[in-house]
Design a protein around this nucleic acid. Sequence first.
DNA 1: CCAGACGTTGTT
DNA 2: GTCTGG
DNA 3: CCAGACGTTGTT
DNA 4: GTCTGG
Length: 245
Amino acid sequence: MCSRFALTTPPELIASAFRLSDPPVVRPRYNIAPTQDALVVRVMDGDREGELMHWGLIPFWSRDTSINARLVNARAETASGRTAFRNAFRKRRCLIPASGFFEWRREDRHKRAFFIRPISRQPMAIAGLYEEWRDPDRPGAPLVESFTILTTEPNVLMRDIHHRMPVLIDPVEQDLWLDPDVTEPEMVHHLLRPTPSDWLEAYCVSSYVDNPAHEGPECVHPMGPSCIEERRAAEGSQIPDSLWG
DNA sequence: CCAGACGTTGTT
DNA sequence: GTCTGG
DNA sequence: CCAGACGTTGTT
DNA sequence: GTCTGG
């Protein structure tokens, strides 16, 4: 799954990595949690743009926003067939820029937080879906845009930590994923595979990050003896040329 | 037909 | 809005 | 994901 | 224990 992530990349670098015409107006965030706003990249009128949206998808037919806290993830294996995600899967696919994401590993009675990031240090592109919603009880209510993160099986690196992980989209495949004119799920399903393990590394962080109200660099500082066990699936392996430009 | 769900995660 | 279950 | 609440009444 | 909110 993916229920917490960071985006600390400078706006200018986000813009170049995602080919946005303007740097997004964002501050560094070390602990982005569900129901909060996060930067989303989508294609609108043929151009990529970065927008802030609520994390937690609100289907357009919802009576209220109470479902928001629950639809923070969508299973990549089934999302295109789910009522809540079907329309978005066809027409409103998006990317969520992230410097890395957090996962908690269960260890007996304890849990330990890990930060997972690209070895390349370029921002990753998490696959997402977004939706548009207006309060049906209030005519003229403002448009609420919200998103969910697609999850899939873990790769070798992640398998040791958790049994789900977010879907990441390779830069060479991003135009296809974002194209709103590609409305057949079959055309994009093959993009929703686990990221190769040698794209990523993982290390332990302190429990400071556990509290969603906490913010700041301490969330991603290596912590404890097992920061030594910083993991790489393939030591010394080359990062594929197709990655991150 | 109407009523009620519509989702994922983790845990037992 | 649309699908499933009763 | 984790943290924190977990409730009703009447009144504004 | 389970639900809601961030």
